[in-house]
Amino acid sequence: MNMLPGPAQAAAIGLSAALPLLLLCYARIAATGGSGRRFRLGSVSILALYAIACLALPGERHFDDVLGGLFLLATAMMFCYILFSLLAWGFTLTLLTALVKAERPLNLEQWAVAYMQGGDLGSFTHNRLKLLVGAGMVIVADGKLAPTAKGVAIARLVKLVRLSTGLG
């Protein structure tokens, strides 16, 4: 068994470790925008650096080495995105941080207000609905919510993924 990565794979492993550090650096630069945009920028930067490394590294490039490196980079990006999105858009995690930030025991209504930083659960619902409407999955008409054909297709896909991953 050969445990040594090829040159491109070694570059990909190094760049995978550098992605969180790059995101930390981008967080200090206001021009990089919000969290989602910053993550996209970080991923594109890492891919560009990988392309440069593949061109600049001495020796002949082998297809399996470059392909393996791409798989490793994509793995690192997905892993970082899962953690990043949990921090940025995690509902349960934010409920916990809101409760701790309040520094006193809260009942359900007070907790909802603390979570929404003065708003209510209606504002939260509209934020989530905006995502569904913006993605063309539902339409709102006459105070009622209805799925589009795309929404129905996505819902079927979600059920299939839940079933095949054992979530029921």
Partner: peptide, 11 residues
């Protein structure tokens, strides 16, 4: 550290 807000709302 990562410059992420604490609202969990989509921007």
């Amino acid at each position: 550290a990562f410059g992420i807000g604490d609202t969990s709302l989509y921007d």
